[in-house]
Every structure is written in structure tokens, then in C-alpha cells.
Simulated assay, not measured.
Amino acid sequence: MSTYMSKEIRDGLEAARIAGMKKASRLRVEAGSEYFPILGLWRTGFSVEAAATPMLRGLVDLYDGANHLYQCLIVASEEEGGEMRYEFKRSTAASDSAPLDFYRAPDAPIALLGKD
């Protein structure tokens, strides 16, 4: 049995694989004011579709749907199989509140009630 595939078949399979990854992922990267779907995310980086995404660089934000996950400083790593891979130089978890500069006891009152 021959394992040879024509270039058209290989390209079609690669396009179908990337389309399936884009459809399954809710993750996206925001660079400037543009959003691009993330194909894969791991501890040290992520990948996006090389053909549909311009070269990213610098500070970006990662989202899961509408939830802001990370603010990252990235650098391009390699292009392989239609995916562009990026590595994190820094990845900081996003928070919806400012960090406290003092200790707050877990049983502390949330607010004080007036005598009125």
C-alpha cells in the first residue's frame, strides 16, 4: 500500500485540522484592537494560525470567551504545520481588582453600618 499523498490532499487535510482546532477553542489573543483565535495553549506559550494572523510581538492579552486570563509579553518561536508558535517571556494572571497592600482578615466586616 502506498502512503503517498498529493500536495492538494495534504493541504486540504491541514486546512481541515486547523479549522477544527479554531472551532473547538474559545481562547483568543488580543493584539492592539484585533482578536485572533488561539489554536493551542500550554504553560510556556500558545499557537495561532500562521496564514490568518499577522506577526505578533510584545504585550498581548489572552481571553477565554469574555474572561481576561493573562497579560503576556511574547516572542515568536517557530512556524510549523500552518501554526505560528509564540513563547511567553512574561505571563501575568489578570485580576478584576487591585492588589491590597495590607492583610485583610477573612472574617473582617465588609462595611460599617451607621446608627441611623
Rank of each mutant, 00 (worst) to 15 (best):
E79W: 01
P106I: 06
G12Y: 03
F102G: 03
Y35E: 09
A76H: 10
K89M: 12
K23P: 04
D96L: 11
A15S: 12
A52M: 13
V75E: 15
T92M: 04
L73Q: 15
P106N: 09
V75W: 02
S6A: 08
D96I: 06
E79I: 15
E14I: 04
A19V: 01
S25R: 07
S97T: 13
P37L: 14
L56T: 03
R43G: 09
L27A: 03
L69V: 11
K115R: 13
K22V: 11
D101I: 07
H68T: 04
Y86A: 04
F46M: 13
A52E: 15
H68G: 10
D101T: 11
E49V: 05
G12F: 05
Y4P: 03
I18M: 06
K7R: 07
L56F: 02
P54Q: 11
E83I: 00
Y35I: 00
W42D: 13
E34N: 14
P109E: 08
Y70E: 08
Y35C: 09
D107C: 06
T3N: 14
L69W: 10
G82E: 01
E8Y: 00
Y103M: 01
G114L: 06
A24N: 12
R26Q: 14
W42P: 00
A52N: 11
R28E: 07
S25C: 10
G114N: 15
H68S: 13
Y70I: 11
R17H: 08
T92V: 13
L41R: 04
G65L: 08
R104Y: 03
I110M: 14
A15L: 11
P37D: 11
F46E: 02
F36P: 01
A105W: 09
G81T: 09
E34G: 00
I74A: 00
A93Y: 01
A19M: 05
A98F: 12
I74G: 05
N67W: 06
T3D: 15
A15P: 00
E78R: 15
R104K: 13
D116S: 12
G114M: 09
A98S: 14
I38N: 02
F88T: 01
L41E: 02
L73G: 02
